[in-house]
Write a protein that binds this DNA or RNA. Structure first.
Length: 556
RNA sequence: GCCCCUGUAGCUCAGUGGAUCAGAGCGUCUGACUUCGGAUCAGAAGGCCGCGGGUUCGAGUCCUGCCGGGGGCGCCA
């Protein structure tokens, strides 16, 4: 990665300056390497001189000049300049830039990968209760988690994707009770729904399906037994829906971890033993508490109720014990809905009390999605039954647009998603802008093939015009984009990059004829567009989107 | 009351403490192919980055106080 190379060169220069006593001996902070706001100021710039000026008791301009003069000559850098108030500007060498086309073609789908040392990272996402269909908000977390996992894996980590299936606990009993009522109703019995039951119409769908497949056999069972059986059957059906939705969003998990596994294998007991050892448990009022006030939390939390039944918090303790101490992940990323944020600090406190560095647990909260239809806000509530399901969103706007829209926004911001708008403006949809660039290149390559042009010996050194150079310079920042997105756990850098690259290509396309009478130049440019296609495809693949070779308008 | 997220162009939103940093897309307005895909390109208009202090050589970015929006504070999950 060229950015790393530049860091090496700067470090070499700084060390040299220090050994010549042109700079005082001191530790050097982050070199502050970035892209200048304008092309004229170079391809990369470092603000290190200003960062160390105070400690060095020197004028930043002088420091910059000293460092710049000691940067060793290299193939990558054509020249170095300084600019007030102390920037060091580096200009890439055009020939070296042109050669990068060959690098990209050689590395292909691996270009940009492996930029970080691998850790074992688990990303747990979606994890919606199997008591109802996924809604749009789940979709956001799903796409965020999945794309993040893609990026982390591509960057070089060993990533495991997991869905936590909440198939034990109070909501299951309520689900079963509701389903039984619906089942009885479907068979002509006039029974009321339980208070706070699941009101969604899908419960009737489930009941009807069960009547269809099993007949009235559950009527004869004792109520408890009937509820249990129905809950189990119903959850399997809901899980099948969920899997179907996720499949259509191209999301696949390595493991579906069931809550009940935590009770079958003693994780909770072991975790509690550890916590007891750490002295953070407290028994009072017949219940077992996590004494988190002593750890700086604003209140204690019940782990085991006075009736002996563990809380949701208890299972999460056991679950994280399992993640860290049994499965030994270096890092665990939990993607939760924003409504769980109150749970974050006590979960971290637990992890810490288990003897694990709490920074190894990263909780990403995905904020609310306000779904709109023609400007009208649609409320998302599982209870009212008036929900827009993820299924509807996928069917309306398609998986590609759905994914692109969700990851374009930082998970920290609430977002509006207007289905009508997304549908109406599908032509103007940014997703098509990127895909169109890819399809356009595919078309050019088809033309070359039709004309039997062999461009394998193309001489990339011919790629020296401004449009060509700009395009390649954009290409070679791809590995940096991956690194930044992976380090910051911020996938939204990827769609932004894809748009910028597509834009650079479209501009290039206007100015530079690819297949022309000039055979040598044609061959070079075919290599260039092929490399653009490679990088676009890499970006789209990481975003979980298709990279079409042809696009057909269907709306005209 | 306490905690978390948030406030940037008419709209939806990007912006690791760096320089023309006021950005993109949509919307509005002007232009552009007899050759590779016009789902394109070139350009214009549009802004006290919610408000006030502070830290810094440098603040949309960090701290703090207000104001506005959303969410959370159960022996629910």
């Amino acid at each position: 990665m060229i950015k790393r190379r530049i860091a090496e060169l700067l470090t070499t220069a700084i060390n040299e300056a220090q050994s010549r006593r042109a700079l005082p001996a001191m530790s050097i902070p982050d070199l502050g390497i970035d892209h200048p706001p304008q092309r004229e100021l170079g391809d990369y710039a470092s603000s290190v001189a200003m960062r160390i000026a105070r400690a060095a008791r020197m004028n930043p301009r002088d420091i910059a000049a000293t460092i710049a003069s000691l940067i060793p000559p290299s193939r990558e850098i054509a020249r170095v300049e300084t600019a007030p108030p102390g920037f060091i500007n580096l200009y890439l060498d055009d020939s070296w830039v042109a050669e990068q086309v060959e690098t990209i073609l050689r590395e292909g789908i691996g270009y940009g990968s492996g930029v970080l040392p691998g850790k074992r990272i688990q990303v747990e996402y979606v994890s919606a209760n199997p008591t109802g269909p996924l809604h749009a908000g789940h979709g956001r977390g799903a796409v965020f988690g999945d794309t993040l996992a893609n990026i982390l894996a591509f960057a070089g980590h060993d990533v495991q994707r997991e869905y936590y299936v909440n198939d034990a606990g109070a909501q299951v009993r309520l689900f079963g009770a509701t389903l039984l009522a619906r089942y009885q109703q479907a068979l002509g019995h006039d029974v009321p729904l339980p208070a706070d039951g699941y009101a969604g119409a899908y419960m009737q769908t489930l009941a009807a399906e069960i009547v269809e497949e099993y007949g009235d056999r559950f009527l004869a069972l004792p109520q408890d037994e009937a509820q249990q059986e129905l809950a189990s059957i119903g959850m399997e059906k809901v899980l099948a829906w969920i899997r179907g939705d996720l499949h259509d969003l191209r999301i696949h998990f390595d493991r579906w971890f069931h809550e009940r596994e935590l009770f079958e294998d003693g994780q909770l007991q072991e975790a509690l033993a550890k916590l007891r050892e750490a002295g953070v448990l407290d028994e009072r009022e017949g219940a077992l508490w996590f004494a988190s006030t002593a750890l700086g939390e604003d209140k204690d939390n019940v782990i085991i109720r006075s009736n002996g039944i563990p809380t949701y918090f208890a299972t999460d303790i056991a679950y994280h014990y399992d993640k860290f101490l049994r499965r030994k992940f270096d890092e665990v990323i939990d993607v939760w809905g924003a409504d769980h944020h109150g749970h974050v600090s006590r979960m971290k406190a637990v992890v810490s009390a288990l003897g694990i560095d709490p920074d190894r647990l990263v909780v990403a909260l995905s904020q609310l999605v306000t779904l709109k239809r023609g400007g009208e806000v649609v409320r998302l509530s599982k209870r009212t039954g008036d929900i827009v399901t993820l299924r509807e969103v996928i069917d309306e706007v398609g998986a590609d647009a759905c994914r692109f829209f969700f990851i374009q926004r930082s998970p920290d911001s609430q977002m509006d998603f207007d289905l009508e708008l997304a549908k109406e403006q599908s032509d103007k949809n940014p997703v098509y802008y990127v895909q169109y660039a890819h399809a356009r290149i595919a078309s050019i390559l088809r033309l070359a093939e039709e004309r039997a042009i062999d461009w394998s010996a193309g001489e990339v050194a011919l790629l020296r015009s401004e449009a060509e150079q700009n395009l390649i310079r954009k290409l070679i920042t791809f590995p940096e984009v991956i690194e930044t997105a992976a380090l910051n756990r911020a996938p939204q850098g990827l769609p932004a990059y894809a748009l910028a690259l597509a834009g650079e290509f479209h501009s290039f396309y206007r100015v530079c004829r690819v297949v022309s009478d000039d055979a040598a130049l044609s061959a070079a440019r075919l290599k260039l567009v092929a490399s653009v296609k490679t990088v676009l495809a890499n970006a789209l693949r990481l975003m979980g989107m298709t990279a079409p070779d042809r696009m057909v308008r269907t709306d005209e």
